[in-house]
Measured scan of single mutants.
Amino acid sequence: DVEPGKFYKGVVTRIEKYGAFINLNEQVRGLLRPRDMISLRAENLNVGDEIIVQAIDVRPEKREIDFKYIP
């Protein structure tokens, strides 16, 4: 289970104008929005990159997770 405030290692699987999709594993995926990329620009991300993200909002009923990148 993903808990708000905890840090996780994930892999960038898709990049859109509104953010990057980060997979923690095959069943868990969330969104890293540009406003939550402190000191990281979306254009510096590539599909396949491994990054550490913090879960900031977890909505299990919608199967949605928002992440924040903190260097």
Rank of each mutant, 00 (worst) to 15 (best):
Asp1Cys: 15
Val2Leu: 08
Val2Lys: 03
Val2Ile: 15
Glu3Asp: 06
Glu3Asn: 06
Glu3Pro: 06
Pro4His: 07
Pro4Met: 12
Gly5Val: 03
Gly5Gln: 04
Gly5Lys: 03
Gly5Phe: 07
Lys6Glu: 05
Phe7Trp: 11
Phe7Cys: 13
Phe7Asn: 05
Phe7Gln: 03
Tyr8Thr: 01
Tyr8Ile: 01
Tyr8Ser: 00
Tyr8Met: 01
Tyr8Trp: 02
Tyr8Asp: 00
Lys9Asn: 05
Lys9Phe: 09
Lys9Pro: 02
Lys9Gln: 07
Lys9Leu: 11
Gly10Asn: 01
Gly10Cys: 08
Val11Asn: 02
Val11Met: 08
Val12Ala: 00
Thr13Gln: 04
Ile15Ser: 01
Ile15Met: 06
Glu16Asp: 12
Glu16Met: 14
Glu16Asn: 14
Tyr18Ile: 10
Tyr18Cys: 08
Gly19Pro: 01
Gly19Cys: 10
Gly19Trp: 10
Ala20Lys: 01
Ala20Cys: 08
Ala20Thr: 08
Ala20His: 03
Phe21Leu: 09
Phe21Gly: 01
Ile22Phe: 07
Ile22Cys: 02
Ile22Gln: 00
Asn23Val: 11
Asn23Gln: 14
Leu24Arg: 00
Leu24Gln: 00
Asn25Ala: 08
Asn25Met: 06
Asn25Lys: 06
Asn25Tyr: 08
Glu26Met: 12
Glu26Arg: 14
Glu26Ala: 15
Glu26His: 13
Gln27Leu: 12
Val28Tyr: 09
Val28Ser: 04
Val28Phe: 08
Val28Asn: 04
Arg29Ile: 13
Arg29Val: 13
Arg29Cys: 13
Arg29Asn: 07
Gly30Val: 09
Gly30Lys: 02
Gly30Asp: 02
Leu31Cys: 08
Leu31Ala: 02
Leu32Gln: 02
Leu32Phe: 05
Leu32His: 03
Leu32Arg: 02
Arg33Ile: 10
Arg33Gln: 05
Arg33Leu: 09
Arg33Cys: 09
Arg33Ala: 06
Arg33Gly: 05
Pro34Val: 15
Pro34Ile: 15
Pro34Lys: 15
Pro34Phe: 15
Pro34Ala: 14
Arg35Leu: 08
Arg35Lys: 13
Arg35Asp: 08
Asp36Ala: 06
Asp36Val: 07
Asp36Ser: 06
Asp36Glu: 06
Asp36Asn: 14
Met37His: 04
Met37Cys: 09
Ile38Met: 10
Ile38Gln: 12
Ile38Leu: 10
Ser39Val: 10
Ser39His: 14
Ser39Ile: 11
Ser39Cys: 15
Ser39Thr: 11
Leu40Cys: 11
Leu40Val: 08
Arg41Val: 11
Arg41Phe: 10
Arg41Ala: 11
Arg41Gln: 12
Arg41Asp: 09
Glu43Asp: 13
Glu43Tyr: 12
Asn44Phe: 12
Asn44Gln: 15
Asn44His: 14
Leu45Met: 07
Leu45Gln: 00
Leu45Cys: 07
Asn46Cys: 14
Asn46Gln: 15
Val47Thr: 04
Val47Glu: 04
Gly48Asn: 03
Gly48Cys: 07
Gly48Arg: 01
Gly48Ser: 01
Gly48Trp: 04
Asp49Lys: 04
Asp49Val: 05
Asp49Leu: 08
Glu50Pro: 08
Glu50Lys: 12
Glu50Tyr: 15
Glu50Asn: 09
Glu50Arg: 12
Glu50Thr: 15
Ile51Val: 08
Ile51Arg: 00
Ile52Leu: 10
Ile52Glu: 04
Ile52Cys: 15
Val53His: 00
Val53Tyr: 01
Val53Phe: 05
Gln54Met: 15
Ala55Lys: 02
Ala55Met: 05
Ala55Asp: 01
Ile56Trp: 07
Ile56Arg: 05
Ile56Gln: 05
Ile56Lys: 09
Ile56Ser: 05
Asp57His: 15
Val58Ile: 09
Val58Ser: 06
Arg59Tyr: 05
Arg59Phe: 04
Arg59His: 05
Arg59Lys: 05
Arg59Thr: 04
Pro60Cys: 10
Pro60Val: 11
Pro60Phe: 10
Pro60Arg: 09
Glu61Tyr: 06
Lys62Arg: 12
Lys62Asn: 08
Lys62Trp: 08
Lys62Val: 10
Lys62Leu: 13
Lys62Ala: 10
Lys62Gln: 10
Arg63Trp: 09
Arg63Gly: 15
Arg63Asp: 10
Arg63Pro: 06
Arg63Met: 12
Arg63Glu: 09
Arg63Ala: 11
Arg63Ile: 06
Glu64Gln: 14
Glu64Phe: 13
Glu64Val: 08
Glu64Ile: 12
Glu64Met: 11
Ile65Ser: 02
Ile65Thr: 03
Asp66Met: 13
Asp66Val: 13
Phe67Ser: 03
Phe67Cys: 06
Phe67Ala: 03
Phe67Gly: 03
Phe67Tyr: 03
Phe67Thr: 03
Phe67Ile: 04
Lys68Asp: 03
Lys68His: 05
Lys68Ile: 11
Lys68Gly: 11
Lys68Asn: 04
Lys68Cys: 11
Tyr69Thr: 04
Tyr69Lys: 03
Tyr69Asp: 04
Tyr69Ala: 06
Ile70Pro: 04
Ile70Ser: 09
Ile70His: 09
Pro71Gly: 14
Pro71Ser: 14
Pro71Tyr: 09
Pro71Ile: 09
Pro71Glu: 11
